[in-house]
Amino acid sequence: MKCGVVVFPGSNCDRDTVYAVESAGGEAFYLWHKETNLRGADCIILPGGFAYGDYLRTGAIARFSPIMKSVIDFADKGGLVFGICNGFQVLLESGLLPGAMMINKTLKFLGQDIFIRVEETDTPYTHDYYQGSVLRIPVAHFEGNYYADGDTLNLLEKEERVIFRYCERDGKISEKGNLNGSLNNIAGICSENRRVLGMMPHPERASAPILGKSDGFAMWKSLLKYFGEVA
């Protein structure tokens, strides 16, 4: 499995993501935002950071970059595109996923470990988890308060496209576990064909036992298995 990790000038989780993919046994390389060639990547990852400074709105300018034209084409043809944190915001702005991000309900940057529940496992990214598993995983964002209108939310729920939800330690879905205020506790959603995934928490930061957190590691394992590279 070859992952192309997109580097916008303000990306700052690109190197962490490459390291995590490689530590799981995958191959990863960087794709500069001014390029258009995806160099045969099996999966495109839009990493965390502040793509173009995000002074207008997170992800607003990134969607017009040369690389995003290719990424959107790639997704339209059924390619795997995975947006983490700022990458999720870019996916929303470019219309690859529905909805928008608002400022956290606390009006503060949120940088801590939180809990999310795995809602669906029938995606290339989550089939190595058990449905209902609770993951402890870091978040680091100022705008992660997911919003979509009622029809969109209903559609997402009906099509079982909410992949992760913020929850309490024991998996309970509540306002208490929903620190940024996202509608329906949404932490991650996928596209209709289930091949584009966006999530606010950082699995690449929960992929090493030395850091005391490894609940995100199975996402890379899922991808590798999806491409038949591990049993």
């Binding site: 995590a20 965390g48 801590q112 680091a140 950082h202 930061r205």
Partner: peptide
């Protein structure tokens, strides 16, 4: 000091033990 530290990104870089 959690109120303070939770406004900092302390885990980016994946080196913070």
């Amino acid at each position: 000091r959690e109120w303070v530290f939770n406004q900092y990104d302390s885990t980016v870089g994946t080196d913070t033990v």
